[in-house]
Design a binder for these strands. Structure first.
Lengths: 236, 236
DNA sequence: GTATGACCAAAAATGCATATCTGGTCAAAT
DNA sequence: ATTTGACCAGATATGCATTTTTGGTCATAC
């Protein structure tokens, strides 16, 4: 499912994570046992403990993998997009990616059904996680001229977060048959934001894209897989 | 707290509802007992059963009162507003009212902490409740020329619901000290919507206001207090 | 060297008897 | 005619012994 299957060890590791992902999405963290995962991945339970010290570390690894996969997806889509990465197409692709990565969505919405007890332990940590398009980012974008000059970047950042949260949470209160296609809606959202906060200036849009590239590069660095590698067992 | 205190019976009824409101908002429906309410309202428990057949009906009455009070508030604010009721000021006041009516907010967000077991029984009913600014409304507004002609009213309606939901739910994932003032944010939201979907045409705006008046009148009729009056006891 | 699954202690779920609480009633007081 | 609060049955919570499950280990097999 995810690359780096060169090493046969890695292949198995990913197979286990795939199994975990599938089971956790269906049954939730609490109700998914290590034996279940082993069975689903067609390995022994012991094998799992050759890869991670505990169920918790396995889950942590899964989170890293999913976050990384999510980031990789939307950033590469953004880079390949015709508009090459304006502020609002960035918003659009990061949301679309959320839709395509149910696990990431569960993290974003702090879905207790799925994250179970893990959420209770890590909620504080998750709240500390900042939305990538936060105040600082929007301030930079405004300085670059990619955000309407007389808009308050702090408020707009908060508003954009709220909208994103609303878009992925609203299905709680709307019956599914009433909801239009999600991609259709985020297209509309990006268009709305562009009309309300975009600038016509071509040159400053280029500057904006520059900042986006910097930020996405930084994000990639932050999630570089080597850093979160699993064999810290030696440690103690 | 709420009008119609002419009749001394009504005065007591409202006192009980005030007590219930206060306790339920703090402790939630499940943990608020009828005795608690009686004590807080300084009446006997028996007295409460002279007003309503059951705890459930008391709660239902509370909901009606709060919904009505909410509707009354934002509609009258809208009518008094300088812009007399454009599409997006309507959105603004209905959101601001939500903020000032915590009970209404709990209903809108289906807050299980507050609604408790009542939610389990009534959730289906609540989902059936439609957002006042739904598809049909926006279609009318577009016909009247108060919504940009080339926008899809269905998608915009869904988007507006999502944004509203996001705005009241986002505090779940943002630490309170990061959040700007709520009124400031909804001002910004209304402004954003106006820029993205508003029309400059003065005449059609007047037509839009006409529709809004019709809809709010209809809403008022729907919630006319007499209809939900409490003495249906005779019934069986 | 690697992988396995029987095995274990700790944790969680279950069953159940007992105690407490709570929605609702109504005879008695006002 | 009203209002009250003691009272009751059913629901809910608590405590606890017993059973089952589960994260994690390690002697054994390959």
């Amino acid at each position: 499912m995810t690359g780096d299957n060169d090493n046969p060890n890695m292949e198995r590791e990913n197979r286990i994570l795939d199994a975990a992902s599938s089971l956790v999405l269906h049954y939730g963290y609490d109700k998914t046992t290590v034996s279940d995962i082993a069975h689903e991945a067609r390995v022994s339970k012991g094998a799992i403990y050759l890869h991670w010290k505990s169920k918790d570390e396995l889950f942590q690894a899964l989170i890293w993998r999913e976050v990384w996969s999510y980031a990789e997806t939307w950033i590469s889509q953004l880079e390949a997009a015709p508009d090459g990465g304006s502020l609002f197409s960035m918003y659009k692709y990061s949301l679309a990616g959320l839709h395509a990565h149910p696990f990431m969505k569960a993290l974003f919405t702090r879905d207790r059904r799925i994250l179970g007890d893990f959420l209770t332990r890590q909620e504080a940590e998750l709240i500390r996680q900042k939305f990538i398009m936060g105040k600082d980012f929007l301030r930079l974008m405004q300085q670059a001229g990619a955000l309407r000059e007389d808009a308050d970047p702090d408020v707009v950042a908060y508003l954009m977060s709220s909208i994103a949260y609303g878009l992925v949470k609203v299905d709680e209160i709307v019956s599914p048959d009433e909801a239009p296609d999600f991609l259709r809606v985020i297209e509309e959202t990006a268009d709305m934001l562009d009309r309300a906060y975009g600038t016509p200036d071509e040159a400053s849009q280029a500057a904006g894209k520059q900042i986006i590239r910097q930020v996405t590069e930084a994000a990639k660095m932050q999630f570089t897989p080597s850093q979160q590698s699993n064999h810290e067992k030696k440690k103690e």
